[in-house]
Design a protein around this nucleic acid. Structure first.
Length: 891
RNA sequence: GGGCUCGUGGUCUAGCUGGUUAUGACGCGGCCUUUACAAGGCUGAGGUCGGCGGUUCGAACCCGCCCGAGCCCA
């Protein structure tokens, strides 16, 4: 029985432990009806450090969805994963153990990664449980685990067999310091001091009348030996005569074509730009679009190659650049040199400026099916709708197939070997997966192509997105059945999954890649819906970042506030919108928790039986009214939760509970002691607990256990919801309330509450205690059989109700309200005249019609605005529902 | 540089396909010891809806430009 104050510091950890220990949220092992199973593709956080507030925020939104559907549908699969096969986890491991990955054989280093990550993962688990997430901790996965490696390699082989993967020599982003290819997400922009150099290029064989030289501005003169073309914008009239000529590179002397391309930025430097293989992304595009030569001037370690003639062996950035600039100056080709600050693409790990190196890489073909992938995206329901646009633009703007190979030493290996003689690709047997070609033998003794018996293992590993894009299949238990010769699922009922929750920053990565991979493997869109949450900002609506020092530490917040308060705050967001962290939002949550606790105490003291029976002679009208209003709130709330309208759901329920239930109904119920009130108090209270349960997971559980769990569990409960309450011993396993559908006189209820409100205001304004007696009150409205309730709660000695009588008030016409929805379109620009005539009192009403400004409006087109004036004894409180009070106490 | 999104009282927000007086919460002022809660109740003040222009009888809402913020892609 709830007494005293609620103590979240002990209650919240207690329930969190119980939920885990008793496996409250376990998904059943037995097959589940696909119609009631609800599945969530939980985002697996990257194991690279500690959880931040953004994780907490996103997780709470997922959990609200999970808890709602667990009550509303039935079985919910809410799994959890740890993404620990990426470079971030390798770095964490190197940092923790103070080692370098190169010191180990691949499997050995992977083992170290697994050990280190395990510690962090335990910490993640603890944190997630501390937020009260209803995750099924029996269903967790690690992306570095053998099971997931098997899924990932199966995926590679399936796509390979479908002909959707190919190997090609192509430029890749390369870190010359770490000596590895990296993906674009591993790079970041950095402001660097640099120099802009104006360099004079010659025009080879220039005719006498043409210019024989032009200027190029560059920050990277050391790339001159790698120059393979010069570009001019097609709209650049001043330099158009150069197009078609041949340029001569200063110092190095080789000749390259001068071409036109609209990717040239005419605003930068001279508007003429050199294309080197490779200085930046655009160079790669030009190289491919114009089929240019390849001149590699910088090697894998960042030093100049033989292409750079006498500069070979010098380090490009720290040696060759200055020497080349000096030499250009000596031959008079350096026209100008000025200091600038510009943005450089660097490797986020070491800060080294990235290069582009041509290497052999594996790709998944995507460009040929963008139409299908667009259609697949349309096949999902998007919360919010507007986020689909990002997916759409990403797919429409795709320029490259998906590069999935990485030259890292840890990660999931490609299950591939090559014939040492003819380079024929040999793929592992599906039944043998997972394999590591570096330590496992290929499935054949001799090359099926040429018979050669020696093989070279592929030592690349898969892009981490190539694995994390399989989470729906991992969750569904996708595998290859060797005997049946087909792919199977342990839990086919969860696929496609009901919802993919994630941030909008990775729509183009995680979501897109998951959709296309699962689509190719199963022919189905992997999600019924996707829920895209916004970012968490700081109190000033700015992005949280370590450098700004405005990062919110989850531990600190949760030490100070109940988790339920944090959950209340998170539920205050419109899905897809960014949400600023606000302490006042958490404090408002605390207040609601306290209100719910105190109201529960009152309910218990007013109605001692947890499940009282409904009175045989029926419910009082006010009780039917309250339960009827609650029905409507349930309908509204259910729709809002189903549409992921968290903020509206939360605020609507809060208002109804606080204003209607606590302020109106409970105040009246306090004055009563009858079976109808007891039944209603308890029925409404149990329903409120359930409706709040998805958001306020802990306090509702505490109250439920205190007040209802014992009897609900025995099956002795009677009355509304008794059947579904008995289903489990946690409120989170109880059934979501269905509307009771009682007949209720809603209009009378609303009128009665208006009377009560008016009387309450009257007392407040006259500085009377709310318990003060009122001598006489007259009401000119139909309040049904609410009279006793009004007199009880407002302490009215003599209440007279005139349901049909004309109120003794004189109505004064104060104006005319136009029905703009009909008047506007009908009279168009004459509306202005009508309005000014009304304002000038220049109109006549004639029964049903209004004559104004030369037109006649029908009864549907206007309404008369009138004020009630009362000259009799007493005071008129409200002229909507006419309430007159005569009271001796009032001065 | 391109795309997408957001901008509503001091703060956070509701406002659906344009239509009377722009919603609620937090904070602020005043009043009320009322047998669940003073961390409560009642009540009041506070907004030219980022700016400018346009469409319209009528714009927070539709269109254009600009400013500020965020994300993604260059």
């Amino acid at each position: 029985m709830p007494s005293g104050e609620y103590d979240p510091d002990t209650a919240e950890p207690r329930w969190q432990r119980r939920w885990v220990d008793e496996e409250t949220y376990a998904y059943p092992d037995d097959p589940v009806d696909p119609n009631t199973a609800f599945s969530i593709d939980t985002p697996p956080p990257t194991v690279s450090g500690n959880l931040h507030w953004g994780h907490v925020y996103g997780s709470i939104l997922q959990d609200i969805v999970a808890r709602f559907h667990r009550m509303y549908d039935s079985e919910v699969l809410y799994p959890f994963g740890y993404d620990d096969n990426g470079i971030a986890s390798e770095r964490l491991t190197e940092r923790e153990l103070d080692v370098r990955h190169q010191e180990f054989e691949r499997r050995e280093f992977q083992q170290h990664c697994r050990d280190v990550c395990l510690e962090y993962e335990e910490n993640f688990t603890e944190k997630m449980q501390g937020v009260g997430l209803s995750i099924d901790w029996n269903n967790t996965y690690r992306t570095i685990s053998p099971e997931v490696q098997r899924v990932s390699q199966l995926s590679f082989i399936d796509l390979y067999e479908q002909g959707r993967e190919y190997r090609q020599e192509a430029p890749a982003i390369w870190c010359p310091d770490c000596e590895t290819a990296i993906s674009q997400v591993e790079t970041e922009d950095d402001e660097r001091d640099s120099h802009f150099h104006d360099i004079e290029f010659g025009v080879a064989g220039a005719s006498a009348d043409a210019d024989d030289a032009f200027t190029i501005s560059t920050t990277r003169p050391e790339l001159l030996p790698a120059c393979v073309a010069v570009f001019v914008h097609p709209d650049d009239d001043a330099n158009q005569d150069l197009v078609g000529e041949t340029a001569e590179i200063p110092l190095f002397g080789h000749e390259v074509p001068i071409l036109a391309d609209d990717r040239v930025d005419m605003e930068t430097g001279s508007g003429i730009v050199m294309c080197c293989t490779f200085g930046d992304q655009t160079d790669i595009e030009w190289y491919q679009a114009h089929d240019l030569d390849l001149r590699i001037a910088i090697d894998a370690s960042g030093h100049m190659t033989d292409v750079a003639d006498g500069y070979a062996g010098l380090h490009a950035a720290t040696g060759a650049r200055e020497v080349i600039v000096d030499d250009l100056d000596d031959v008079g080709a350096l026209l100008d040199r000025r200091a600038i600050e510009h943005t450089v693409n660097v490797h986020e790990r070491c800060g080294t400026g990235i290069e582009f190196l041509v290497t052999e890489q594996w790709y998944i073909e995507v460009l040929d099916r963008t139409d299908e992938y667009l259609e697949a995206g349309r096949g999902m329901e998007w919360f919010p709708d507007k986020m689909f646009t990002r997916y759409e633009h990403w797919v429409e703007g795709l320029q490259w197939d998906w590069l999935i190979s990485r030259q890292r030493s840890s990660g999931i290996p490609f299950p591939v070997w090559y014939c040492a003689d003819c380079d024929h690709e040999i793929v592992a047997e599906k039944s043998a997966l997972p394999v590591d070609p570096l330590s496992d033998d290929p499935p054949v003794d001799a090359c099926p192509e040429c018979g050669h018996a020696e093989f070279v293992p592929e030592d690349d590993v898969l892009d981490t997105w190539a694995t994390s894009s399989l989470t729906p299949l991992i969750n569904a238990g996708w595998d290859w059945d060797e005997n049946a010769g087909e792919f199977t699922m342990d839990r086919p009922e969860v696929y496609p999954m009901d919802v993919r929750p994630q941030g909008h920053d990775i729509i183009s990565f995680w979501l897109f890649h998951t959709v296309i991979k699962c689509y190719e493997h199963t022919g189905e869109v992997p999600f019924e819906s996707t829920m895209i949450n916004g970012m968490v900002l700081d109190e000033n609506r700015e992005k949280m970042s370590k450098s700004k020092g405005n990062v919110v530490d989850p531990d600190r917040v949760l030490a100070e506030y109940p988790v339920d308060a944090a959950r209340y705050w998170a539920a205050g967001s419109a899905i897809g919108d960014d949400l600023p962290y606000q302490e006042k939002g958490l404090r408002a949550g605390e207040k609601l928790i306290r209100k719910l606790w105190n109201a529960s105490k009152l309910v218990e003291s007013l109605a001692s039986e947890p499940y009282p029976e409904a009175p045989a002679d029926g419910l009082h009208e006010i009780d039917r009214w309250l339960l009827g209003e609650l029905d409507r709130e349930i309908d509204t709330l259910t729709d809002r939760l189903a549409n992921r309208e968290f903020s509206k759901a939360r605020d609507g329920l809060r208002s109804f509970f606080w204003n209607t239930f606590c302020d109106d109904y409970l105040e009246i119920a306090k004055q009563r002691d009858d079976p109808s009130a007891a039944y209603t108090l308890r029925t409404a209270h149990r329903r409120f607990l359930k409706l709040f349960a998805p958001v306020l997971a802990h306090v509702t559980e505490e109250l439920w256990q205190d007040m209802y769990a014992d009897i609900a569990g025995t099956g002795d409960a009677v009355g509304a919801d008794a059947g579904s309450d008995a289903a489990g011993d946690s409120i989170h396993l109880a059934g979501w309330p269905e509307p009771l559908g009682l007949d209720a006189d809603t209009d009378a209820g609303v009128a009665a509450m208006a009377v009560v409100g008016a009387l309450r205001r009257y007392k407040s304004e006259n500085q009377l205690p709310l318990t003060a007696e009122l001598d006489a009150v007259e009401v000119y409205a139909d309040v049904g059989s609410f009279e006793a309730d009004i007199t009880g709660v407002m302490h009215v000695d003599d209440l007279t109700v005139h349901p049909d009588a004309e109120a003794p008030v004189e109505t004064v016409i104060t104006g005319i309200d136009l029905e703009y929805a009909t008047v506007g379109p009908k009279y168009g620009d004459r509306v202005g005249d009508i309005e000014s005539a009304i304002a000038a009192d220049d109109y006549e009403t004639d029964g049903e019609e209004l004559h104004v400004a030369g037109v006649t409006l029908g009864p549907e087109e206007f309404s008369i605005e009138e004020d009630g004036q009362y000259a009799g004894e007493g005071k008129l409180l409200d002229d909507d529902v006419v309430v007159i009070v005569r009271n001796a106490v009032e001065a």
